[in-house]
């Protein structure tokens, strides 16, 4: 489904702030699979997601969805295939517009926008029916500005919007990180339900080890712009939170060791 081949991205190249955010990352995602990407801060996990979504164009490498090369496409063009939920719960919807208006826009993601009245009775009924499944009582508030809702409610609606038209790929960028624990659990649960119901292919960046263990069927661990661990099938089923933390520790120790050894060698030989 999704094939990423050797993509690299360096931010601020040639300056003192140069960051090699992605170094020759390759990844293949199967149709209907749900993959979590975990990693420390600055490991490149969100950058990888943004490269797929089209926030920037990678320096090299290719990104293909169903064989179509999309790595040079602008962000809005990729939205035809990709549904997204952002970390910021306010990023996925237009605050001053009503719930119904926001959803109506999502109902034509990547399609033409004809000069016909967007929000009418029939559409509202269809929206109310689907919003009901969130069990938040929002179906009675379709004409309220979406900005009056809580972060959790907005994130749940963004999730619904991103999946209203079945996307070829759903990208979740730490979509529960900015929510209070209760809302986070609710949105995580909704994520699981929707992905299972619609049989979506999803890629989720998360900080929560628990989420990475509970929700997806594959875990990819990133460090310093590279994929360092890839747990799937049997391995993934056996893995628990302590195992993940242990793997993190090993990676970080290995790195500390490398740096201190390098310094020692420097002192001795230069």
């Amino acid at each position: 489904m999704l094939t990423i081949n050797n993509i690299s991205k360096t931010f601020f190249p040639g300056t003192i702030n140069e960051v090699k955010a992605l170094r020759k990352v390759s990844l293949q995602i199967k149709e209907g699979s749900f993959t979590a990407i975990i990693g420390t801060n600055g490991s490149g996990k969100s950058t990888l997601l943004n490269a797929i979504a089209g926030t920037f164009i990678p320096d090299e490498g290719s990104i293909k969805i169903d064989g179509t090369e999309i790595s040079r496409w602008p962000e809005y063009k990729r939205a035809r295939m990709i549904g997204r939920v952002f970390q910021n719960p306010f990023a996925g919807s237009a605050a001053d517009m009503t719930i119904a208006e926001n959803i109506v826009m999502a109902m034509r993601r990547g399609q033409s926008r004809p000069l016909k009245i967007a929000v009418h009775k029939n559409i509202k009924a269809a929206i109310a029916e689907k919003v009901q499944m969130l069990k938040m009582g929002l179906e009675d508030r379709l004409d309220n500005p979406i900005g009056t809702l809580s972060g959790g409610q907005r994130q749940a609606l963004t999730l619904l919007m991103a999946t209203w038209l079945k996307p070829k790929l759903l990208l979740l960028d730490e979509h529960t990180a900015a929510l209070d624990p209760k809302s986070a659990a609710k949105v995580a649960e909704l994520t699981k339900i929707i992905i299972e119901q619609e049989k979506l292919t999803a890629l989720m960046v998360t900080h929560s080890m628990q989420q990475a263990v509970d929700l997806p069927d594959r875990i990819v661990m990133m460090h310093r712009g590279q994929i360092v661990e890839d747990l799937r099938d049997e391995m993934k089923h056996r893995v628990r939170v302590p195992d993940l933390l242990e793997t993190f520790n090993i990676i970080q120790k290995r790195e500390l060791f490398d740096e201190s050894v390098a310094r020692l060698m420097k002192e001795q030989y230069i």
């Binding site: 990023a91 237009a94 208006e101 034509r108 000069l115």
Partner: peptide, 29 residues
Amino acid sequence: NYFLKTHFGTVLRATGNNPQMVRAQGVNN
């Protein structure tokens, strides 16, 4: 009034509100 309530007009209004969201809905802001 009619135009701003159409599908096209709705996206137009969203553009000032949240351009990131408009791009994510497949429209060139």
